[in-house]
Amino acid sequence: MSQKLTHLQDLNRLIPYAQMVGLEIARDDKGLLTKLLAHPDNIGNEVIGAIHGGVVGGLLEHAASFHLLHELLDRDTIPRIINVSFDYLRPALLKDTYARGYIVKQGKRVANVRVSAWQEDENRPVACANAHFLIA
Protein backbone atom coordinates (compact mmCIF):
# COMPACT_ATOMS: atom_id res chain seq x y z
CA MET A 1 0.00 0.00 0.00
CA SER A 2 2.72 2.47 0.94
CA GLN A 3 4.55 1.52 -2.24
CA LYS A 4 1.47 2.53 -4.18
CA LEU A 5 1.28 5.84 -2.31
CA THR A 6 4.92 6.55 -3.11
CA HIS A 7 4.22 5.77 -6.75
CA LEU A 8 1.28 8.22 -6.84
CA GLN A 9 3.36 10.86 -5.06
CA ASP A 10 6.13 10.43 -7.63
CA LEU A 11 3.60 10.73 -10.44
CA ASN A 12 2.10 13.87 -8.87
CA ARG A 13 5.52 15.48 -8.50
CA LEU A 14 6.02 15.21 -12.25
CA ILE A 15 2.86 17.20 -13.01
CA PRO A 16 3.79 20.87 -13.60
CA TYR A 17 0.30 22.17 -12.72
CA ALA A 18 0.34 20.33 -9.39
CA GLN A 19 3.69 21.91 -8.57
CA MET A 20 2.55 25.38 -9.62
CA VAL A 21 -0.46 25.53 -7.28
CA GLY A 22 0.97 23.25 -4.56
CA LEU A 23 -0.93 19.96 -4.82
CA GLU A 24 0.36 17.00 -2.78
CA ILE A 25 -0.78 13.42 -2.38
CA ALA A 26 -0.98 12.05 1.16
CA ARG A 27 -2.76 9.42 3.21
CA ASP A 28 -4.54 9.34 6.55
CA ASP A 29 -6.39 6.64 8.46
CA LYS A 30 -9.43 7.03 6.18
CA GLY A 31 -7.51 6.69 2.92
CA LEU A 32 -6.01 8.79 0.17
CA LEU A 33 -5.93 12.57 0.56
CA THR A 34 -5.09 15.33 -1.88
CA LYS A 35 -3.72 18.46 -0.25
CA LEU A 36 -3.56 22.00 -1.63
CA LEU A 37 -0.91 24.00 0.21
CA ALA A 38 -1.72 27.56 1.29
CA HIS A 39 0.00 29.52 -1.45
CA PRO A 40 -0.41 33.33 -1.82
CA ASP A 41 -0.35 33.00 -5.62
CA ASN A 42 -3.61 31.03 -5.43
CA ILE A 43 -5.64 33.95 -4.07
CA GLY A 44 -8.68 34.90 -6.13
CA ASN A 45 -10.45 37.27 -3.73
CA GLU A 46 -8.33 39.84 -1.96
CA VAL A 47 -11.10 41.26 0.24
CA ILE A 48 -11.53 38.08 2.25
CA GLY A 49 -8.23 36.49 1.18
CA ALA A 50 -9.89 33.46 -0.39
CA ILE A 51 -8.40 30.91 -2.75
CA HIS A 52 -9.48 31.28 -6.39
CA GLY A 53 -12.53 29.13 -7.19
CA GLY A 54 -10.70 27.72 -10.18
CA VAL A 55 -7.86 26.43 -7.97
CA VAL A 56 -10.38 24.87 -5.56
CA GLY A 57 -11.93 23.32 -8.69
CA GLY A 58 -8.45 22.14 -9.71
CA LEU A 59 -7.95 20.52 -6.30
CA LEU A 60 -11.26 18.67 -6.66
CA GLU A 61 -10.51 17.52 -10.23
CA HIS A 62 -6.99 16.46 -9.26
CA ALA A 63 -8.23 14.63 -6.15
CA ALA A 64 -10.87 12.82 -8.20
CA SER A 65 -8.34 11.57 -10.77
CA PHE A 66 -5.80 10.53 -8.14
CA HIS A 67 -8.50 8.75 -6.19
CA LEU A 68 -9.36 6.82 -9.35
CA LEU A 69 -5.69 6.04 -10.02
CA HIS A 70 -5.43 4.76 -6.46
CA GLU A 71 -8.49 2.53 -6.75
CA LEU A 72 -8.01 1.22 -10.28
CA LEU A 73 -5.11 -1.16 -10.12
CA ASP A 74 -2.44 -1.47 -12.81
CA ARG A 75 -3.07 1.88 -14.39
CA ASP A 76 -0.60 4.61 -14.96
CA THR A 77 -2.46 6.88 -17.33
CA ILE A 78 -4.39 9.68 -15.73
CA PRO A 79 -8.10 9.04 -16.34
CA ARG A 80 -9.67 11.45 -18.81
CA ILE A 81 -12.27 13.77 -17.29
CA ILE A 82 -15.62 13.99 -19.14
CA ASN A 83 -17.35 16.61 -17.01
CA VAL A 84 -17.55 17.94 -13.49
CA SER A 85 -20.03 19.86 -11.43
CA PHE A 86 -18.74 21.96 -8.52
CA ASP A 87 -20.72 23.28 -5.60
CA TYR A 88 -19.06 26.13 -3.73
CA LEU A 89 -20.23 25.90 -0.13
CA ARG A 90 -18.04 28.21 1.95
CA PRO A 91 -15.16 30.59 1.21
CA ALA A 92 -11.87 28.68 1.04
CA LEU A 93 -9.51 30.90 3.01
CA LEU A 94 -5.74 30.88 2.56
CA LYS A 95 -5.08 27.72 4.57
CA ASP A 96 -4.09 24.20 3.61
CA THR A 97 -7.08 22.55 1.94
CA TYR A 98 -7.76 18.82 1.73
CA ALA A 99 -9.87 16.73 -0.62
CA ARG A 100 -11.05 13.15 -0.54
CA GLY A 101 -12.71 11.18 -3.32
CA TYR A 102 -15.31 8.44 -3.29
CA ILE A 103 -16.27 6.28 -6.27
CA VAL A 104 -20.06 6.31 -6.58
CA LYS A 105 -20.05 3.91 -9.49
CA GLN A 106 -17.36 2.29 -11.54
CA GLY A 107 -18.53 0.88 -14.85
CA LYS A 108 -16.51 -0.63 -17.68
CA ARG A 109 -15.96 2.70 -19.41
CA VAL A 110 -17.07 5.42 -17.04
CA ALA A 111 -16.48 6.13 -13.37
CA ASN A 112 -18.62 8.51 -11.33
CA VAL A 113 -16.60 10.11 -8.54
CA ARG A 114 -17.68 12.40 -5.72
CA VAL A 115 -15.11 14.64 -4.03
CA SER A 116 -15.28 16.86 -1.01
CA ALA A 117 -12.80 19.58 0.05
CA TRP A 118 -12.38 21.06 3.52
CA GLN A 119 -9.91 23.08 5.56
CA GLU A 120 -10.01 22.51 9.30
CA ASP A 121 -13.01 20.24 9.69
CA GLU A 122 -13.94 17.50 7.24
CA ASN A 123 -17.58 17.94 8.34
CA ARG A 124 -17.55 21.56 7.16
CA PRO A 125 -16.67 21.26 3.47
CA VAL A 126 -15.71 24.39 1.50
CA ALA A 127 -16.63 22.79 -1.83
CA CYS A 128 -17.68 19.48 -3.33
CA ALA A 129 -17.90 18.05 -6.81
CA ASN A 130 -19.27 15.21 -8.85
CA ALA A 131 -17.25 14.13 -11.88
CA HIS A 132 -17.36 11.56 -14.69
CA PHE A 133 -14.17 10.02 -16.02
CA LEU A 134 -13.49 7.83 -19.03
CA ILE A 135 -11.51 4.88 -17.74
CA ALA A 136 -11.42 2.63 -20.80
Binding site: I15, Y17, H52, G53, G54, E61, H62, F86
Partner: peptide, 12 residues
Protein backbone atom coordinates in the same frame (compact mmCIF):
# COMPACT_ATOMS: atom_id res chain seq x y z
CA UNK B 1 -2.78 21.26 -20.07
CA UNK B 2 -4.39 20.29 -16.77
CA UNK B 3 -8.20 20.43 -16.99
CA UNK B 4 -8.07 22.84 -14.03
CA UNK B 5 -6.70 25.51 -16.38
CA UNK B 6 -9.91 25.50 -18.45
CA UNK B 7 -11.91 25.37 -15.20
CA UNK B 8 -10.05 28.39 -13.81
CA UNK B 9 -10.34 30.40 -17.02
CA UNK B 10 -14.10 29.75 -17.30
CA UNK B 11 -14.73 30.30 -13.57
CA UNK B 12 -12.95 33.66 -13.73
Amino acid sequence: MHSAIATTLLDT
